[in-house]
Design a binder for these strands. Sequence first.
DNA 1: AGGACACTACCTACCGTTCGTTAGTTATTA
DNA 2: TAATAACTAACGAACGGTAGGTAGTGTCCT
Lengths: 194, 194
Amino acid sequence: MKKDSTQDRIKEVALILFARKGFEGTSLSEIASGVGIKKPSLYAHYKSKEDLFLGVIHKVSVDYNAFFIKTAEELSDRSPEDQLYYLLHKNTGYLRNDELGLIFKRMMLFPPESLRSDIYAMFEKTEDVMRQVIQSILVQMVREEEWEQVFDAYLCLLDGVFEQVFYYSPEEHKKRLENSWSAFIKGVYSREEK
Amino acid sequence: MKKDSTQDRIKEVALILFARKGFEGTSLSEIASGVGIKKPSLYAHYKSKEDLFLGVIHKVSVDYNAFFIKTAEELSDRSPEDQLYYLLHKNTGYLRNDELGLIFKRMMLFPPESLRSDIYAMFEKTEDVMRQVIQSILVQMVREEEWEQVFDAYLCLLDGVFEQVFYYSPEEHKKRLENSWSAFIKGVYSREEK
DNA sequence: AGGACACTACCTACCGTTCGTTAGTTATTA
DNA sequence: TAATAACTAACGAACGGTAGGTAGTGTCCT
């Protein structure tokens, strides 16, 4: 089923190494030896280190967009509150796996200088997707003039929770997620008065 | 007053470069030429690249702890709510300046593999300081059994807001900060009723 | 059917450059 | 005089990348 082409194997290995050690911190020799071939053989598949790297990032960005949309669809029959809650959970879980969150966040925050614009271009789509998905949920639960405020707060929650994935143990992190979520949702519902 | 020793100049230049391009992405030649000396001269002041790097990180961590404590003291005569609000603002402002936030976050999230434990050891103190300062404010405004929940939410807010410093323009970011803050504080105050 | 050709995916060997680092020397300063 | 802080020169190692070669595979032309 899955074409296990060398090209894909290279991408898999490179993803892990780039995620853990960054672009400059990863050498082509390492990648090659992880795949089980010699360094120059990489050039049969990618024409430079940057080319390989951008290939990896492109795959990551496409995968993430697909995941986000798919998850939102799966949840679409729940209440808006539940949708936001599970989206937060699923998103965190997804990004915790497979080095995917690691490389995603690394590239958003600290892209290699020379590739910054290419990387940002790839992730622009991602922001769009997230905005649309979250917007479509929020319009069901808050008044229009409050929409933006709640959206910003939810995105901040998403960012904060995600960042903490790196600091804390899974248990500690789950506790913090639940507490942060409680505070968020209380803030949303207390919004009617005053 | 300020001893403008070469040693300090090296640290300043290194801070900026390490912050922007990371440990592996910054070469000693760059640092030297930024200071205006030749690469081998660096070894009159630091015995290795790692030594220099840890020196920089140490300074960053000490400075940040001092800032956090000083800011909290300056605000201590305000209402607890105001203290939290301005702490959020000041913290964001401080970290935005001088590449300080950049290197701080980079090292928390993506430390160079070989120095991970040294770096984490330095920032342990920071977490302690923050916990103490925030705790001393929170006990004045929420019931004891809710303390932990609000603390987690506030820290998540701090993390989320800080991360967004990198993505958005100052204006956009300020808007998002205010919106996220509003949601947070409403959540805190709506906490009395069931 | 069989040979010439081209293509793919790998190899070994090596290129020039840059890296972090050391040695040895000199000029300034205390 | 002794220490300090700079220098020039050079080191070995590793880097990204190239050249050239070689098996294996399929394809086209008689």
